[in-house]
Design a protein around this nucleic acid. Sequence first.
DNA 1: AATTAGATGTTCT
DNA 2: GAACATCTAATTA
Length: 211
Amino acid sequence: MSATKLFSDFYERPDVVTIAKELLGKTLVTCIDGFYTAARITEVEAYAGRNDKACHANGGLRTARTEMMYARGGMAYVYLCYGMHHLFNVVTNKEGMADAVLIRAVMPLAGEEHMLQRRGKPTVTKILSSGPATLSQALGIKTKLHYGTDLAGELIWIEDARVLKPEEIVVSTRIGVDYAEEDALKPWRFYQADMPWVSKKLKQDQLLSEF
DNA sequence: AATTAGATGTTCT
DNA sequence: GAACATCTAATTA
């Protein structure tokens, strides 16, 4: 049970889809406002830089918001979604490539009492942290404070765990990217099979017809 | 169980 | 001014 923090050698690899799948099962840890919280990553999506119409960096777009996507792998890209939700991404690949993995759901492992307080919930259920905005709220991640946080530091980091087998992973299209034309069909969402801690489960008929 | 509407603010056209 | 990598409560069935 040696919990090993992940560093650049993990994050700076070139294939964002591989990194996304390998992040499943690993432990996302925050030490924010003096509260230690840890959770198992159960759902992710890959966003593939400037050639992905669903990605904020599509076409090489560089703005104040997207600038952090172009950093080297291992930084936090956090942004405000729909005016009120903080979505947490891990930047991957080399500097300038703008790949990132969106963390979409986690299962609490430690510091549940702080997560409940931040979310205003009485008990630990899947709605505590099964969704990209709810997990950020549970872990205390906020856009203005944590944009550009180095995951090698002491505020937000990820600890290693075994890589899941292919049969333990469900593949689907990404959520909420219908505007992305053909790239909306890319099977770049991954979640751990047989886990309640997922934002949206696929129905059986979708599983068979699409993949 | 499934669908809908409203909240909210930053970004980009 | 439109769109947006969403969530929740309320409504319909």
